[in-house]
Amino acid sequence: MNQNFCFEDFRSGNEDAFRMIYEEYRTRLFYFASKYIPELEVAEDTVQEAFVKVWQKRCNFNDLDAVKAFLYISIKNQCFNFRKHSKVVHLYSNSHKEEIAEEEIMNHILESEVLDRVFKALEKLPRGCRDVMHLSYFEELKNKEVADILKISVNTVKTQKRRGLSLLKVVLKSFSFLGLF
């Protein structure tokens, strides 16, 4: 989110300010919801519902962290509620007792937050380098295979991978200087 954002605008009902909050948080919240609900439409629904609530209660928030925390917890509550109803259809790998659940919620929040930072950092990498990173790590292809697909040499693949990793570091660095984080 850029510096023009003003929390007071959001509180006083400015939709543009609200949209900035929405665009900033929606993906990580969506990822968070998907940890509990594999059906993406339902997961997406919980995110939207949480934002509807935030908008209704906007006057009660003092800062962005409070909004964000509220969004996570609201989504988690909806997901738990949903799962209560759909237990027969989906047999999930973990059973959820209340104490374990709280620990797990926090871990999911942490993971969603970290991934969001990493993604924003990766987005700033040059295109060619991103393709190599994508094929190598996401598709789990070997250097030779990546080279064949992209029609580049194996050495280029190796260089781009190294470059990707170190660029990631540089970008993360500049990222952490942004005021909001």
Binding site: F70, M106, I109, V114, R117, L168, L172
Partner: peptide, 25 residues
């Protein structure tokens, strides 16, 4: 709920630390 929200905020801080770690700073 308030307790959960406060815990969540602690984890926002932790996430910032993890990102700083990935960056080596």
């Amino acid at each position: 709920i308030i307790k959960l929200m406060e815990r969540a905020k602690l984890h926002f801080d932790l996430a910032r630390l993890v990102a700083r770690f990935l960056n080596g700073e």
